[in-house]
Simulated scan of single mutants.
Amino acid sequence: MEPANELVYIVDDETSVGEALSTLLRANGKRVQIFTSGQDFLDFARRDSCACLILDLKMPGLGGLEVQKLISTKTSIPVIFLTGRGDIPSTVRAMRGGAVDFLTKPVDEDALLASVERALRQDYATRQEAVEYARLVARYESLTPREREVLSLLARGLLNKQAAFELGITEYTVQIHRGHIMRKMEADSFATLVKLAGKLELEMMSTSHGKM
């Protein structure tokens, strides 16, 4: 990760808390943006960067759990909850909603910094996975309709001759298609090709593209 591209959002209705957290994080090289309400954060046009959210559980208006739920319908960002009046049900709901951590005020500085680092690493990994998947889909899109048919059958475990029979073509033609597929999908082995096909969930892909 490049620290210059990282951003930590803080949402807490207590200005003093937000400022204290901001000072701590900035002193440790983090870029910070503070909001005093959940609605302000939701209305904010976030930049596309590696980020995490430190979110107060109990706030006037939208509470932390409500903000977490609303965020999850639009985007993905790791959340660290803070509370001075936490309870077990809230903790469970927060964790089920994908929260990275649930810390009690006054917050232990080392625990908070460790949680922020973990949250940023998580967001970075999620972003990388999304980029890699988009590239994989683009490679799949470069296949011809017939190549997609062949890939789908081979990924299901059919031999070349079995795929040829299913498609009403020669085994040699299947071998030719297989070579083109391996090259376009950038697979260095057939095992890798099958693994890539599994990531694509070809049945779902074929539904979106019509008959493969």
Rank of each mutant, 00 (worst) to 15 (best):
N5V: 13
E6Q: 09
L7I: 03
V8I: 05
Y9P: 01
Y9C: 01
Y9T: 00
Y9M: 00
I10K: 00
V11N: 05
V11R: 00
D12A: 00
D13N: 08
T15M: 09
S16C: 09
V17A: 10
V17S: 13
G18Q: 03
E19W: 11
E19Q: 15
A20Y: 12
A20H: 13
S22R: 07
S22M: 06
L25M: 07
L25K: 05
L25N: 10
R26W: 00
A27T: 14
N28K: 06
G29L: 08
G29Y: 03
G29Q: 10
K30I: 01
K30V: 01
R31W: 06
R31Y: 03
V32L: 14
V32Y: 09
V32P: 07
Q33V: 00
Q33C: 02
Q33I: 01
I34E: 01
I34N: 03
G38A: 12
G38D: 06
Q39R: 15
Q39L: 15
D40G: 02
L42Y: 08
L42N: 02
D43N: 09
A45S: 06
A45N: 12
A45Q: 14
R47P: 00
R47I: 01
D48W: 13
A51P: 03
A51F: 13
C52T: 01
C52A: 10
I54G: 03
D56G: 07
L57K: 01
K58H: 07
K58V: 00
K58Y: 02
M59S: 04
P60H: 05
G61V: 09
L62T: 06
L62Q: 02
G64L: 06
L65P: 01
L65D: 04
E66C: 08
E66Y: 08
V67M: 12
L70M: 10
S72E: 14
S72F: 10
K74M: 14
K74C: 06
K74N: 12
S76L: 08
P78I: 06
F81Q: 09
T83N: 04
G84K: 10
D87Q: 13
P89T: 02
S90F: 04
S90V: 03
T91Y: 11
R93K: 05
R93V: 03
R93S: 08
A94Q: 09
M95L: 07
R96Q: 15
R96G: 07
G98A: 11
A99C: 15
D101M: 13
P106S: 11
P106A: 11
P106H: 04
P106Q: 02
V107A: 07
D108K: 12
D108V: 11
D110K: 05
D110F: 04
E117G: 05
R118K: 12
A119C: 10
A119F: 10
Q122E: 04
Q122C: 09
D123S: 12
D123V: 11
D123E: 14
D123W: 12
Y124C: 12
Y124T: 10
R127K: 15
R127E: 13
Q128S: 11
A130F: 15
A130I: 13
V131Y: 10
